[in-house]
């Protein structure tokens, strides 16, 4: 990835601001709804750029511990899914659940952080 400014995060942010400030106020109906959806999608990308790397690294560490082997995120997730289905993780259920809950919490923090706190 180029390190020149604007970086990827700044470009996505600029597009999101453009949609929010200049498109959203001037459209209605289905187009307004889809504009809001697009703004939300870009916000997910921004959060992923900012926090995704650290989350991936932590997930990889947890997977290595849990499966007691080396590998990349994709391979170890595939292995974990296979092992759960085969019932091979049943003796490590507490550790497995702790990992899965942390992973889902991280993903939701990227996708929809308000989901964890929103009331009413």
């Amino acid at each position: 990835m180029p390190t020149d400014r604007p970086n990827a995060a700044e470009l996505v942010e600029a597009v999101r601001e453009f949609l929010s400030d200049h498109i959203a106020p001037n459209v209605e109906g289905q187009l307004a709804f889809h504009t809001r959806v697009a703004i939300n999608a870009l916000a997910i990308v921004e959060r992923t750029i900012a926090q995704g790397g650290a989350m991936d690294a932590a997930e990889l560490d947890r997977l290595k511990d849990l499966l007691d082997r080396d590998g990349n995120l994709e391979d170890l997730n595939e292995e974990l899914s296979r092992a759960i289905r085969a019932g091979e993780m049943d003796d490590r259920k507490e550790a497995l659940l702790a990992h899965l809950r942390q992973t889902s919490e991280d993903k939701i923090a990227l996708a929809n952080p308000r989901y964890l706190t929103k009331r009413g």
Binding site: F33, H34, V37, A38, N40, A41, I44, L97, L100, R101, S104, E105, K107, I108, L110, A111, N112, Y115
Partner: peptide, 23 residues
């Protein structure tokens, strides 16, 4: 569809909730 592809990221809502419910 930007709407359909975005809903994909809501899958984690179901995942998060069910992981809170199970033991």
């Amino acid at each position: 569809s930007v709407e359909k592809v975005s809903i994909g990221r809501r899958a984690v809502e179901g995942e998060y909730d069910l992981l809170q419910l199970v033991d």
